[in-house]
Amino acid sequence: MTEQYWYTIEDVDQLDTPALVVYPKRVKQNIDMLKYMIDDVFRLRPHIKTYKNKEVALLMMDAGITKFKCATIAEAEMLGMCNAPDVLLAYQPTEPKLLRFIKLIQTYPDTKFSCLIDNEASANTISTIATDENLSVNIYIDLNVGMNRTGISPENEALQLYKACFQLQGINLIGLHAYDGHIHDADIVIRTEKVNAWYGIVIKLQNEILDSGFPKPLIIAGGSPTFPILASKKNLECSPGTFVYWDRGYQLAFEEQHFLIAALLVARIVSLPEENLLCIDCGHKSVAAENVLAKRIYFLNAPDVKIISQSEEHLVVDAGKGHGYKVGDVLYGLPYHICPTVALYESAITIENNNITGQWLNIARDRKITI
């Protein structure tokens, strides 16, 4: 009889593979741990990109979390469907995305939606369209604090943009957004030094805005790698996302964060092409494949296999001669990057007390729900 671990599924014969499975009890424990790591739940604005389903969003709301962050209109709409009180679309919408965003605001009036901008032209466009629709769109200025992906420099140009936006009709300027996704050093001391460097610049900007006679702008900042550092500061909102499921990459990189693995991939051995090789039904279409082969998936009950190759539907690993694995054996895989992995699956199968209990539909993995 196979030894039972926390992840073992007793009725796994009912589950076709590859499959994404989630353990609700562990999800709840991760939410509790997140709350424990910060002084005020009101400072939490978790990103929903990892899970993409209503069920986890509702669990967070049940835990007292009222603010959320997302990256797509579909993710924002899913939160509107959940009656989430406050949702930031962490994206600068351009037409037709802007028109969809306006429609979102009109369709879900009980949710306070906001978005990002990093230039005056985009602000003017939002102002014009919002004014035509008799709306006031909530805006955060997106700051480039080193990732060099989006945003405006917090040192030189941001204050002028803030002043310009404050004068525009159809815009309600709320604050500043700073994402530091480029900071992922394993050493928390180094991470802390890098966070403090950009944080000081953003606080200086905040004070300059205050000195210019404007209301104090709110600050939304960070992701999972820098969450413990930013959580220890005051007067800003934190936006971790991966914590809810966790993954192999963050498990290895950020040892000071003790979130539980709450989602896995279940796969099966489908062939034994050579005496040392196993072929598993876990190809590019089953697990995030942006990393090198060795950093895509780690099998909890086959930790020593070495990945040799991967194609669309197959993963070939070297298990060594005399390995003892058989066709049909079930493997439990931990993705290195869970967020894009979840997007490959229509649903996550729920596992409670080592048995299948249902499914959570990942409706926000699509580009469009209704809007």
Results as ranks from 00 to 15, higher is better:
L260G: 02
V317R: 00
E77R: 00
A231P: 08
W6Y: 11
L272F: 00
I371E: 05
P273A: 01
V316W: 11
L361I: 14
K194V: 01
S311L: 01
V292F: 10
G170P: 04
C339L: 11
H177M: 15
L176G: 07
S127V: 06
L59F: 01
L334D: 04
L116A: 14
T50N: 10
F166Y: 15
Q359V: 02
Q92E: 10
S239H: 08
T2F: 12
T125I: 07
L300A: 09
L277E: 12
P46E: 01
H284N: 12
L20Y: 06
I117T: 02
E312Y: 05
C115R: 10
Y51K: 05
A158F: 02
S153H: 06
L331S: 09
L176P: 02
G80D: 03
A294H: 04
I369E: 15
L278A: 12
V145P: 15
I9N: 10
V12S: 15
I126K: 02
I73N: 10
E275I: 11
R100C: 03
L116V: 11
T192H: 15
A74C: 01
D11A: 12
D40Q: 15
W360A: 08
N124M: 13
V287S: 10
I126P: 08
V145Q: 11
H184P: 11
G249N: 13
R26K: 08
A348N: 13
A197K: 03
D247T: 07
G64S: 02
G358E: 15
K52S: 08
L59R: 00
I48N: 09
G213Y: 13
E255Y: 06
K54H: 07
D39A: 14
K234M: 05
P18A: 02
A84G: 02
I203E: 14
D86S: 08
H314G: 06
D16P: 10
L58P: 10
K216L: 12
H47R: 06
V87H: 14
A178L: 02
E274M: 00
A294Q: 07
L98R: 10
K194L: 13
L331I: 01
P215Q: 08
L168Y: 14
E157C: 13
N144C: 07
T72P: 07
K368D: 05
C238K: 05
I190Q: 06
L260F: 14
I65S: 05
K97G: 04
W246L: 13
V317L: 02
N172D: 11
C115I: 02
R268P: 01
R367I: 08
G333I: 03
Y250M: 09
I183M: 01
N196T: 13
E346K: 07
L331K: 05
K67T: 14
Y23S: 03
I219R: 00
V195C: 15
C82Q: 09
E120T: 14
P85L: 11
T370W: 09
I203Q: 15
E10M: 10
D366G: 00
I73S: 12
D187Q: 04
D40R: 06
I174P: 00
Y140A: 07
T17W: 05
Y325M: 07
F42D: 14
I229E: 03
A19P: 03
S153C: 15
V189H: 14
V270L: 09
A348P: 00
L361K: 12
D118A: 01
V195W: 11
F101G: 04
L20S: 13
T350E: 06
C70F: 03
A288E: 09
L265E: 04
H47E: 09
E256K: 05
R365D: 08
